[in-house]
Amino acid sequence: MTQTAQIKQTFPNGTAEVAVIRQGACAHNCSECGGCMTAAQPTVTALAENTVDAKVGELVVVETENAQLMGIIAFVYLVPMVLLVTGYLLAQAFGLTQGWCILAGVIAFGVSVLFIVALDRWVKRRKSIQFRIVAHKEA
């Protein structure tokens, strides 16, 4: 996956802090919306491998591994729904009333949130999602 980012800071070890525009907030069609990097657009800061020797303030293209990112996205969106439905259906299979089935679904959903928090901490600890600057962004 490639995204547009702005260099916020560079480091001697070949990395840079980048501000990545959240994809949902930017259509990457600057001529239509008046330009990128306005204060109204939400951004996420991350460290990226600076392979093109980009300087502070420059717009660059950053990429990350699609397969790993898609796996994490699938986990975050699918596991809560699967556990919610599974909790409800499991309680229903035991013959519990609708109120108890709903409660079982909510508890299972809560457990999925704990799984997601654990995944988030694991990804941050391992630095599993790595950004790499691959090109300077053409204006």
Rank of each mutant, 00 (worst) to 15 (best):
T4W: 03
T4E: 10
T4D: 04
I7T: 09
F11T: 10
P12C: 02
N13F: 05
T15Q: 13
A16Q: 07
R22F: 03
G24L: 06
G24I: 02
G24P: 00
A27F: 04
C30H: 08
S31P: 00
M37V: 06
M37K: 11
A39F: 06
A40K: 14
P42I: 04
P42S: 07
T45R: 13
L47W: 06
T51K: 15
A54F: 09
N66G: 03
N66T: 14
Q68C: 00
L69P: 00
A74T: 15
F75C: 07
V76Y: 08
L78N: 03
V79S: 09
V85F: 13
Y88W: 13
Y88T: 02
L89P: 00
A91S: 14
A91E: 06
A91Y: 04
A91Q: 08
Q98P: 00
G105S: 02
V106Q: 00
V106L: 11
G110I: 05
V113A: 12
V117Y: 15
A118G: 05
L119T: 14
W122N: 07
W122Q: 06
V123E: 03
K124Y: 05
K127D: 14
K127L: 01
S128R: 06
Q130M: 06
I133D: 12
V134D: 09
H136A: 14
A139L: 08
